[in-house]
């Protein structure tokens, strides 16, 4: 076994004894090298917990700092990072929360974390100009092929369909609305989009969410509209004009493009 493999094995031994220590370490004063080695283990763990705390502030507020850090610690033990870019380290954190038994009494927690992860992704998403209302108006006016076109949406755009009131829960922690008035079990759909430098979280109806979700996957306008009108379970009636209005108002449209068979993946919904 290599020297660094032994170092890593001891580093990631987060057992209660906190005593694992690779061989071959020395200390100038013959003190216990395990105590000094533990500084590295502690640095690794604290940096990973801090990285998660940065990305999931509302999740942390919902459970309190001590609970959050304990949960983040368990996640870090189970999922040490495989990438050097820590901005995206929390990708698998929401799924972990879903199965984290001590948090079972807050069934909405995982979806709040999903919303926060989408906000992180939107924050760092690629920059791209979106069309102005005039440009969109012109495109809509003289396009006989419109229904067969795909909408290229801004790279930050994402939709979260939740069985819980994720938009209200998140909003209450931004000073928008009273948390006491939120019924967490009311299903909500969130649109996440960055305009300029600001990431927005917008509550939309479920059918609009399905429509936008389908467009993100590369469906044509017609196919996305049909899907949003017919997919089961039917939560809300689909209103095409209102849905396009949401896309316009939140400056999401970058391009009307020709349909490409290669850009339309199979139907899947989270």
């Amino acid at each position: 076994m290599s020297g660094q493999q032994a170092f890593v094995d001891a580093l990631l031994d987060f057992g209660p004894a906190n005593q694992a220590c690779p061989s071959g370490l020395a200390t100038w004063n013959h003190s216990d090298p395990a105590r000094r080695f533990a500084v590295y283990r502690n640095n690794v763990m604290i940096s990973l917990i801090d990285a998660l705390a940065d990305g999931f502030p509302v999740t942390q507020e919902l459970v309190g700092e001590a609970f959050f850090r304990g949960m983040a610690r368990q996640f870090a033990i189970a999922h040490p990072p495989r990438s050097r870019i820590l901005a995206y380290y929390g990708r698998d954190f929401p799924s972990f929360i879903e199965t984290f038994l001590p948090a079972a009494s807050l069934p909405y927690l995982a979806d709040v974390a999903r919303l926060e992860m989408l906000r992180v992704l939107a924050y760092h998403a690629a920059d791209r100009e979106t069309l102005t209302r005039d440009e969109i108006g012109a495109a809509l006016a003289d396009d006989s092929e419109l229904t067969r076109r795909c909408l290229v949406l801004h790279p930050s755009v994402a939709v979260l369909q939740s069985n819980f009131a994720v938009v209200s829960l998140w909003g209450a922690h931004q000073g928008l609305g009273d948390i006491a008035a939120v019924d967490p079990t009311a299903p909500q759909t969130a649109l996440v989009v960055r305009i300029g430098l600001d990431v927005n979280v917008v509550g939309i109806d479920a059918a609009t969410g399905r429509f936008i979700g389908r467009l993100i996957q590369g469906a044509t306008l017609a196919d996305a509209a049909i899907y949003a009108s017919t997919a089961e379970p039917r939560a809300t009636e689909f209103d095409l004009v209102a849905s396009l209005g949401v896309l316009l108002r939140w400056k999401t449209i970058c391009e009307f493009s020709a349909f490409s068979e290669f850009s339309a993946p199979g139907t899947s919904e989270r």
Binding site: F7, V8, Y40, V44, S47, A51, P81, R82, R84
Partner: peptide
Amino acid sequence: HGDLFLND
């Protein structure tokens, strides 16, 4: 080390 990133 390998595909692990230790962030320290």
